[in-house]
Design a protein around this nucleic acid. Structure first.
Lengths: 251, 251
DNA sequence: CAGTGGTCTAGACCACCAT
DNA sequence: TGGTGGTCTAGACCACTGG
């Protein structure tokens, strides 16, 4: 790709975007090194003959990407790439499987109304011993191979019956929206490594002592009241998490 | 906290920030529901007597948080909270341990220059059979309990000797910067669940068949040339990943 | 066509930092 | 004190959407 050191004011590509890419390139090619200062906003205004707001929007793009940081009264400086991030993304097996043209399906194993036990009352922060929950389990499989299973609980609202097919939707927040008056607004997930015990091995048709990934999710409404909880158990040899940090060269 | 439905133009708090918080509150309290449209920019301008750029900056904040999305020619709409994100953060055990006042230390086990074998030449994308790498291993422990171990490889640069204490720094990108001419710019990590084998059990003083988290990291320079590789093995009962999605009520 | 958000200008005043 | 980035204004033209 041909990289100019100038901008085209008549291009359909916004000026701020051209400017941002221009400086991005300088940083990626090492012409501007971490710690060094960017040209001042007024200098860029003068160099390229654009307004200051346009320059600021360009710089804002770089700030958002974490490539530079601004200090009032001092200047704008090239940042060090943050490579020790610890943010991972669970590979969307759904997508991956589809890409390979495989069949991906969720099978409902069990669904019923239950009285919440001690543990569940604690999770849902409710003391009522008659507190009832909708409970259901399902297995996720592809190509006739079981990949994961899930156990889910949501607050039961009598007035809004749940349709069978809705239980197969893996999206718990959606289910809650459709079948209760609660509006899911945030969620917390915890992922841990585990080793298959008898029950896991039996459900997933795998051996004992094989690696698993376990994700426990709690869903909250706008007032941080827990309205759903789920536990997902993934085969460790079929799921992984990936993380891409830092500044990449553009296409 | 007292929530006004108006803004204070003379406050030290920027107007755009007050505006953003105002609409954030409306969304979190359900006064503006997902799918509904925000007031138009011109309406907000008229309602609050501020300039359009200020309004746009406020809306940009909400867009950045994923709370609303704008559609040219149509309007700006409240988004659905994304709760099925699959982005996890590995808990910074370092920090957690320090908070508890524990001792947290990295012990260097072994460090030497090696000839790259087939697997490493592939990782570093180099064919030269005499290609040399700096190799070292270390163990991370706290409170006299071993928590994790790491194996790291970086390209060896004769002219820049590495000091012993630098090897204890868990930050591989920093080590590369200090001891080679390469500038780490991006990295890719893959995390998987595993089960302790003999070697893991021995190094970490744990039992066989216990859960582990394994992170393999490749570090690239600005040209996407691999310049470092590491494998970290964490005790599955001591490390976990967490994820917080959606819109939280602000303090 | 009118209304929306997207971009851009040419000013202005301010808070902060170094000297 | 002069230079920096942070905020804000009051315009303008554009591309896109819908009726």
């Amino acid at each position: 790709m041909y990289e100019e050191n100038s901008i085209d004011k008549n291009s359909v590509i916004p000026i701020y975007y051209q400017l941002a890419k221009l400086f991005e390139g300088k940083i990626q090619r090492g012409e501007l090194k971490p710690g060094e200062s960017m040209p001042t906003e007024m200098k860029i205004v003068a160099d390229f003959g654009v307004s200051r707001m346009t320059v600021r929007k360009a710089i804002a793009e770089l700030v958002a990407k974490g490539m530079v940081h601004a200090q009032q009264g001092k200047g704008t400086f090239v940042s060090n790439p943050k490579l020790d991030n610890v943010v991972f993304e669970l590979n969307n097996f759904d997508q991956e499987i589809r890409q390979r043209g495989f069949e991906y399906k969720t099978t409902l194993i069990e669904a019923k109304i239950i009285k919440a036990d001690e543990r569940l009352r604690k999770i849902f922060k409710i003391d009522d011993h008659n507190f009832r929950l909708l409970y259901f389990r399902s297995v996720i499989s592809a190509e006739d191979e079981k990949l994961a299973y899930e156990v889910k609980y949501t607050i039961y609202t009598k007035s809004k019956p749940i349709l069978e097919f809705e239980l197969q939707d893996p999206n718990l927040p959606y289910l809650i929206t459709a079948n209760s008056d609660y509006l899911p607004m945030s969620s917390k997930k915890v992922l841990q490594a585990a080793v298959s015990a008898k029950e896991d091995a039996s459900i997933l048709s795998i051996g004992l002592n094989t690696p698993l990934l376990v994700v426990e999710q709690t869903i909250y409404d706008g007032q941080l009241k827990p309205v759903g909880w789920s536990k997902s158990v993934y085969r460790g040899d079929r799921y992984k998490l990936t993380s891409n940090d830092g500044w990449y060269k553009e296409e």
